[in-house]
């Protein structure tokens, strides 16, 4: 007997659909990155260390297959990419991909803690402001969110260093501090010293998403409160607690999850600034160094890895979205 659950089936279709889409996007991105690297100037200048000797250059040209046609080269590039090889860094003289992956945990640690700060503080503040928009506290919260929204991340980083590290010596201003190894990766949030190092950079990075989460929660509540189903829930005689947590917050969580997912990508990008100010040894700092040193293979690897992360996050958000909102005909998205 074959019993097909329609809901599971459409979920499967949806997932396949999304994975194929992500794959197409990755393919297009690889093409764009490839084209960008090759279209601007001589690929030999771009891909081969300018300080190399003439002999070495010829050898590398052959190694990299630069004597072949563009099509063949892209094909080889793709083949290598599938094998996880994205070229050698000139500066570090190591595979670019392993350089990136080595620093990925530090960046993820920073972005996730910033996002957590934003969510844990932002949703309650936004809720308070949304429920009583006219009192003084709510107005202050909203004014604060515009303020945070406008703060230039890099400048705030400098000011934080100035106040807490230079003037008061409260927090260390650079580095990651002590780390703990888990599954071969190093994390600093498990030691006190590590947490102290993490504090300033993650606060710095959290300000923008915090402002966003506050405003989003506020707007969501303001839009939902006058809706009939809230009125009907009140007419049923439900407690205020149940209406807020069950009817209101669960409903506005849907758009918030989407935006937070998108913010994750934005934060990985903005981590470039925070990492270079606080000398946080993540992949953002690596990319800035690579840009100044013209270490192109690392840039290419960084881009493809981040795009891959974005696709993954988008996929997770889409799945969460369809779990949270029963109305979505998943196959329709």
């Amino acid at each position: 007997m074959l019993f097909i659950n329609y809901k599971n089936l459409s979920m499967l279709i949806f997932l396949t659909n999304r994975i194929i889409q992500s794959f197409i996007v990755l393919l297009i991105m690889s093409l764009l990155v490839f084209a960008a690297v090759y279209a601007i100037g001589n690929p030999i200048d771009v891909l081969i260390n300018p300080e190399a000797s003439e002999e070495e250059k010829i050898k590398t040209i052959k190694n990299l297959g630069l004597d072949k046609s563009l099509f063949e080269q892209y094909y080889i590039f793709l083949q290598n990419a599938f094998k996880g090889e994205l070229g050698y860094s000139f500066v570090h003289n190591r595979p670019a991909i392993s350089l990136i992956l080595e620093r990925l945990p530090a960046t993820l640690e920073l972005t996730i803690s910033a996002l957590l700060i934003a969510i844990i503080i932002g949703i309650p503040l936004g809720t308070i402001a949304g429920l009583n928009p006219d009192n003084f506290i709510s107005k202050s919260i909203l004014a604060m969110s515009i303020f945070f929204f406008s703060l230039p991340t890099f400048w705030v980083g400098l000011i934080l260093i100035m106040i807490f590290a230079v003037s008061y010596n409260f927090f260390p201003s650079t580095g990651r501090g002590d780390t703990v190894e888990i599954f071969g990766f190093y994390f600093s949030f498990l030691t006190f010293d590590g947490l102290k190092h993490l504090a300033l950079p993650s606060i710095n990075l959290a300000l923008y998403p915090l402002a966003l989460v506050i405003r989003l929660t506020f707007a969501g509540i303001q839009e939902t409160l006058p809706l009939d189903f809230i009125k009907f829930a009140r007419a049923k005689g439900l407690s205020r607690f149940r209406i807020i947590y069950y009817h209101l917050l669960k409903y506005i969580l849907i758009p918030i999850v989407t935006v937070i997912g998108l913010q994750f990508s934005v934060l990985i990008a903005f981590a470039v600034i925070t990492e270079s100010i606080f000398a946080w040894p993540g992949m953002g700092r690596l990319i800035i160094e690579s840009i100044t040193l013209l270490d192109r293979p690392v840039i290419v690897a960084y881009l493809l890895v981040t795009v891959f992360i974005f696709m993954l996050v988008n996929l997770i958000v889409d799945i969460l979205y369809s779990l949270l909102d029963p109305r979505i005909r998943i196959s329709d998205k």
Binding site: L227, F229, K231, H247, K250, Y251, L324, P326
Partner: peptide, 28 residues
Amino acid sequence: MKSIRGKKISMIFQDATMSLNPILSIET
């Protein structure tokens, strides 16, 4: 008032599409 609403006096609104919460099951 809460102990009266829904227990002693109930209300029905114009459009049930709007008055039922779309993300909670009928059971809930």
